Amino acid sequence: MLEKFKISRKLLRELDFTIIATIVIIVVFGALNIYSATNMKFGIYYLKAQLIWLAAGLVLTYIILIFDYSIIQGYADIIYWLGIFLLILNDTIFKSTVNGASSWMKIGSFSMQPSEFAKLGMIIMLAKELSKMEGKINDLRNFVKLAGYAALPMLLIVIQPDMGMTMVCFFIVLGIFFAAGLDLKIIGGGILGLVTLIAIVWNSPLMEDYWKVRLTSFLNPSADELGSGLQLIQSQIGIGSGGILGKGFLKGTQIAGGFIPESHTDFIFSVVGEEWGLVGAIALLFLYGIVIYKLINIAKNSKDIFGSVICVGVISTLLFSVLQNIGMTIGIMPITGITLPYMSYGGSSMLTSFMSLGLVLNIGMRKKKINF
């Protein structure tokens, strides 16, 4: 019975353990920063919870590695439409508002963020369809079909409204379409369409004043220092005060004083900047760089279109999320609810990140074509 859950040594030799080790280092480093941000009020609760999510993520990754990733292609429709179904439930029946957005589904004491799973479902669906089309994305019929599959979950996420996740999904689609060779004129038209959609949503009842202020406060945070600009100003003070080497672990005054809201989730990079300084920030970016470089190599060496597109989708997710999250903590990007992958506290984001990791590692592990 247990034999079914073993991975052959031949396949294990193809597994990139450097990626796994680097991700574990990032998660553990993140857990330490989460502890620093929460220990005054909650002791080791969040530290312990994050390490449990790490263990669960590694188990989930192993389970995904057992099965050939090509099997997933046959279940792409189910995975995609399940994600859509969860988004519809979230937008209608089980929605729970957090920080102005109804992006969380709460049933009793259990809560989850359906958009995280829908995002992964969208990547798998686009990969499956592009594989069926043999990569012929510039065929009008093919493009319209792909655009439809991409637009549906994004529209349901806009309704919440979760602008952060909408941005992530857009850049996932942009990355996949660009890598698939879509005509640059169409990409330009798509960006123009997004700008138009943003303008429409911005001036619609969906976009509450709270979100408008939140998204534009980074342009001039000092205009409302005690309101919409508080989080960014305190974050910049914390990161700036860290200097080159940082104040030291558990010695961050901005963090210990609770001056930075959401410092264990969205603004975890503020903790890194204050306590570990520029050196710690660069080290973290270096670790992300290793992971992204390795993932790109797996995408290039995949044996099929399905595997390559999944890799590109995961790379796009990771790259944009890192740039957006860090950017918003230093004031060069709008403030959204995008977490820092593998660093921020959160079960939904952590598990989907490890699911994505498992898929890419699976693709890399089975990159060699089987010859009969």
Rank of each mutant, 00 (worst) to 15 (best):
189 G>C: 08
147 A>C: 14
259 F>L: 12
214 R>M: 04
178 F>N: 12
170 F>M: 10
206 L>M: 14
272 V>W: 15
199 A>S: 11
172 I>Y: 13
262 E>L: 12
173 V>G: 00
264 H>C: 01
196 T>N: 02
244 I>V: 15
160 Q>N: 00
153 P>T: 04
274 E>W: 02
265 T>D: 06
156 L>D: 00
229 G>A: 08
145 K>M: 14
231 Q>L: 03
211 W>Q: 06
259 F>A: 09
210 Y>S: 11
174 L>N: 02
172 I>T: 09
153 P>E: 04
162 D>C: 00
273 G>L: 10
222 S>M: 07
165 M>G: 01
256 A>V: 13
188 G>C: 10
170 F>H: 07
157 I>E: 02
146 L>Y: 04
147 A>I: 15
198 I>Y: 09
147 A>E: 11
241 S>L: 02
244 I>E: 13
219 L>R: 08
206 L>V: 12
242 G>S: 11
275 E>C: 13
158 V>S: 05
216 T>A: 04
213 V>C: 06
177 F>I: 03
185 K>D: 08
177 F>K: 01
238 G>A: 15
204 S>M: 13
213 V>F: 04
161 P>N: 01
191 I>T: 11
175 G>F: 04
160 Q>Y: 00
194 L>F: 09
221 P>S: 00
242 G>C: 10
212 K>S: 01
267 F>Q: 01
183 D>T: 06
231 Q>P: 01
233 I>N: 14
191 I>H: 12
186 I>L: 11
271 V>W: 09
237 I>M: 01
239 I>K: 01
244 I>S: 11
270 S>E: 12
260 I>N: 03
271 V>M: 07
170 F>L: 05
262 E>R: 11
205 P>H: 06
257 G>S: 14
249 F>P: 02
217 S>R: 07
196 T>I: 07
245 L>A: 08
271 V>N: 09
248 G>H: 04
186 I>G: 09
186 I>T: 14
261 P>V: 06
263 S>K: 08
173 V>W: 01
270 S>A: 15
262 E>N: 12
177 F>L: 08
275 E>P: 10
147 A>P: 13
153 P>L: 03
266 D>S: 10
196 T>C: 02
232 L>I: 00
240 G>C: 05
243 G>I: 12
215 L>F: 01
151 A>S: 09
193 G>F: 14
174 L>T: 08
238 G>L: 07
270 S>D: 15
168 V>G: 00
230 L>F: 15
254 Q>H: 11
259 F>R: 06
214 R>S: 05
251 K>E: 13
260 I>Y: 05
266 D>M: 08
153 P>S: 03
166 T>Y: 00
192 L>Y: 03
229 G>Q: 06
179 A>P: 02
242 G>E: 12
189 G>R: 09
178 F>W: 15
200 I>Q: 10
170 F>Y: 11
